[in-house]
Design a protein around this nucleic acid. Structure first.
Lengths: 131, 131
DNA sequence: GGAAAGGCGACCAATCTGGTCCGATATTAA
DNA sequence: TTAATATCGGACCAGATTGGTCGCCTTTCC
């Protein structure tokens, strides 16, 4: 637990680069990848997810690329993580795959859910702007 | 990220059960496993790790078992996670395996390290007693 | 001595995830 | 209109991680 997936990591690197752009400029996935040593084929995928989610705006065409679609201080780490890694569940039994054999006397779930909320709050408070 | 490993989950379940014990009593791994539906062969391993770390006291022999070795309010979730999942690193490049190609202009690491510390603080404040 | 407990190491299996390949589509420049 | 460059999306492979099992040993109590 508590390790950023590489995709999320790449996303943060890319977003941070896009943030440093002059208004009106854009960066292609290829450019981002080569500049930061990211996997060439994976970078467009990551950016695409961010574009779907509306964090980033993609412009097609010969001199296209990506730019931020929102202000940097409205983009939180929590959101990025949620987009790329899905909504995390602290307890394994909250993922649907594993059914819990001890539901009856399971007084561990609620505290864990609270704990998770608290941790997501930490991630929510951290925006791209103050990263 | 942000999902408890099953081992950590099992550990918390077991610890919580041990906490409810009368002083002097002990629970065997087998008993814990059957009572909470944990994998029979995995449970002793988890408990052994906790015993090595000094969270739990194991007594050998026919009527042996496990009991808490410390007060419940001195056992934190952070400690349990650290024992079973190792010391987590939020950024992939902080794990030693992956060398970072962008160290020079990587101003992402320090903020992530801070973020990680903050999250560990949350886990540090949560003890077995108030879980 | 036998039964029941923990301790330890090796090993298998399933899952997850990073990463690649390929093709389709859209847009712009020449 | 054509070529180049971009996003988009699905299928797929491979390596790492992790969950889980098996077997053997030591210790303790009856």
């Amino acid at each position: 637990m508590l390790r950023l997936s590489r995709k999320s990591d790449y996303a943060l690197v890319a977003l941070k680069a896009l943030r440093a752009l002059e208004p009106g400029d854009a960066l292609s996935a290829r450019e981002l990848a080569s500049r930061f040593g990211l996997p060439v084929d994976l970078t467009p995928k990551v950016l695409a997810r961010l574009a779907q989610a509306g964090l980033v705006q993609a412009t097609l065409g010969k001199s296209g690329g990506y730019r931020l679609a929102r202000d940097a201080d409205t983009i939180t780490v929590a959101e990025v993580v949620r987009i790329l890694d899905g909504d995390p569940a602290l307890a394994p039994c909250r993922e649907g795959i594993l059914e819990c054999h001890r539901i009856a006397d399971c007084d561990l779930r609620n505290p864990l859910d609270n704990l998770q909320r608290e941790m997501m709050n930490v991630l929510d408070r951290m925006t791209l702007a103050n990263l």
